[in-house]
Design a binder for these strands. Structure first.
Length: 564
RNA sequence: UGUCCGAUGGUGUAAUUGGCAACACAACUGACUCUGGAUCAGUAGAGUCCAGGUUCGAACCCUGGUCGGACAACCA
């Protein structure tokens, strides 16, 4: 519909990465080929920050008719596990991306990488060093002070070859020796100070088993892996900018194809943390119930919470990509899921804090099937039947004995519409004598105002949701709030840690009375409970116990005014 | 007292590459509404980190500062 108004097709501006790619395309670099990759380490679950990278890499592949690989950078067997490999593949697929037949592992290249190391040794560009971790660290210098050369730096090529071969054979224990690149101990770039490229690790690997006892360092594997896969644009986060000269050095010395690395700023979100380590702490220390706890910014957490792949992709698109540090307001993420669910989630009525309403002039045993619209945004979703009877429940918040301010819901003597049903009028209030607590309210209904009836269009100030007492289904409801009480939990005061800002009210469990149509709901089904919010069926649901997660509440301008 | 990177409304991203700051979220008005949702209309909010310079003209180029981030794991 937008395109009908302006035919001079408003072209969307390019982000800086697309600009670089298009420039390369114009210059005929790589024969016009675009090939990206998403290279996670299988040592944890993916989070929304990874989603940004996934959408970027796969999005670019798609946009430029190129390809995108999935490659696991699995060079550290002590931290990695197939559990993570599986979850990562599941998450990428769920987000809607396809690596087709291009699933790779850095461990696929171990033999090749070993050969590359031999090349370096033969060129006199790498040496076996016998110093231990502490000694190496001490001689590395600091960013402002040059390091000292290793006493083993001068070993002959033959000696290095012999030692490295024996390292591979398993003749030395963990930590006894490392292979180092011979570059420059006085380089202002710490990564160029004779970096370690191979270490001894007598640990079995999740894919290569006990085939190897030496493993390449990430820096020695990543760039070459990209090269081997003929990646044209290696997109990564900012912290690897300083590594680029090293990658370039390896590629040049080994003499292989050079991809172009482009760095972008990682995503930060308000009221949460985004590092794998911190997320793991929250799981291990029981702040949350697992990686897929719906409060977690992990992909599996968001999925369980009720987020859709479309909403996350749209979020990634909306936040854009640049090089400056950024913190995105969670409200943008919430906007994206509301926007999506508004169009696709069917409506249901559910009461969280019930207040009993008896309609005195309604026949005792009558049950009427009301016609309710499933989704007013999409008439094709049709209608459903909602049973109505003499005793119903409404939300406690929807009644005020002495209405204040602009409260225009139910109160004594006032009329309101019951959604998809009748207009009722509050006639009296029954209270507990001692406490004054409201027990129930009595109303009358106007039979001529049934929804859909010709004369039903009388204007009333508000419409309330409701459920029929004898037909309602009970469900467990989990209400989530932000994980932390501080916008940036990483910004800690003296003597505190991000954990001190954990929001102890981030999960509230309550129950709800829901209209009977809910019983057919299956895991991950999403609904809008009218006037409350979007809810998704949780996997903890059993035939006896329906469990819903609140994805996000509806915007509430009344509640907002109240808080002022 | 190093190297690299960055700096545009509250937040994020733009600005046809030197032509007079736009879009989205958030906020606020109002209209409409059988969801105080959605939708629609509108308002406010930056003169682009600072100081110089080049130019008819600078958010874009140059110089010098300031501030912020990354880098000293046998992690990735």
């Amino acid at each position: 519909m937008e395109e009908t108004t302006n035919n001079n097709e408003e072209k969307k501006s390019l982000n800086f990465i697309e600009e670089i790619i298009e420039e390369d395309l114009r210059n005929g670099v790589n024969e016009g080929r675009v090939h990206t990759r998403f290279p996670p380490e299988p040592n944890g679950y993916l989070h929304i920050g990874h989603a940004k990278s996934i959408c970027l890499n796969f999005g670019l592949g798609k946009k430029y008719n190129g390809k995108t690989n999935l490659r696991f950078d699995d060079t550290n067997p002590v931290k990695e596990d197939v559990e993570y490999v599986d979850s990562i593949m599941e998450d990428v697929k769920w987000l809607g991306f396809d690596w087709e037949d291009r699933l790779f592992y850095a461990s696929d290249y171990f033999e090749q990488l070993y050969e590359y190391a031999i090349i370096l040794i033969k060129k006199g560009k790498a040496f076996v060093c016998d110093m231990n971790a502490e000694e190496i660290s001490e001689t590395r210098g600091t960013p402002t002070r040059p390091g000292k050369e290793s006493p083993y730096r001068g070993r002959t090529i033959e000696e290095n070859l012999d030692l490295f071969t024996r390292m591979r054979k398993g003749e030395f224990p963990d930590g006894a020796k490392v292979l180092r690149a011979k570059i420059d101990m006085s380089s202002p770039n710490m990564h160029m100070r004779d970096p370690i490229i191979y270490r001894i690790l007598h640990t079995s690997h999740h894919r290569t088993g006990d085939q190897w006892c030496i493993y390449p360092m990430y820096d020695f594997a990543h760039g070459q892996s990209d090269s081997l896969e003929h990646i044209t644009h290696s997109i990564c986060t900012l912290e690897f900018e300083v590594h680029r000269p090293l990658y370039d050095w390896f590629i040049r010395e080994i003499g292989i194809y050079a991809p172009r690395q482009i760095e972008f700023a990682r995503l930060n979100l308000t009221y949460t943390v985004m590092s794998k380590r911190k997320l793991l702490d929250l799981v291990k220390e029981g702040f949350v119930q697992g990686w897929d706890d719906p409060r977690m910014p992990t992909i599996c957490g968001l999925r369980r919470r009720g987020y859709t792949p479309e909403s996350i992709r749209n979020f990634a698109e909306t936040i854009g990509v640049a090089k400056r540090d950024n913190v995105i307001d969670v409200s943008l993420l919430e906007f994206c899921i509301r926007e999506d669910l508004n169009k696709r989630a069917n409506r249901l009525m559910a009461v969280l804090n019930p207040l009993k309403v008896i309609i005195d002039n309604y026949p005792d045993d009558l049950v009427e099937e009301m016609n309710a619209t499933n989704n007013p945004e999409d008439e094709s979703r049709g209608k459903r039947k909602v049973p109505f009877s003499k005793t119903i429940y409404i939300e406690q918040d929807d009644f005020m004995e002495t209405p204040q301010g602009k409260f225009f819901r139910l109160s004594p003597g006032r009329e309101v519409r019951l959604r998809s049903a009748y207009i009722i009028k509050c006639e009296s209030v029954v209270k507990e004598p001692e406490t004054g607590r409201i027990l129930e309210i009595h109303c009358s209904y106007d039979p001529m105002t049934k929804s859909g009836m010709a004369e039903s269009n009388r204007k009333v100030k508000s419409t309330l949701h409701w459920v029929s007492a004898k037909h309602a289904v009970t469900a467990e409801i989990r209400l989530y709030d932000r994980l932390f009480i501080k916008e940036n939990p990483d910004e800690v005061e003296e003597g505190k840690t991000y954990k001190d800002y954990f929001n102890t009210n981030s999960l509230k469990i309550c129950s709800a009375l829901i209209e009977p149509a809910v019983i057919s709901a299956k895991n991950l089904d999403k609904f809008q409970f009218e006037r409350i919010g979007y809810f998704a069926v949780d996997k903890d649901t059993t035939p006896k116990n329906l469990v819903f997660n609140r994805v996000v509440p509806l915007k509430d301008s009344w509640n907002k005014n109240e808080k002022k």
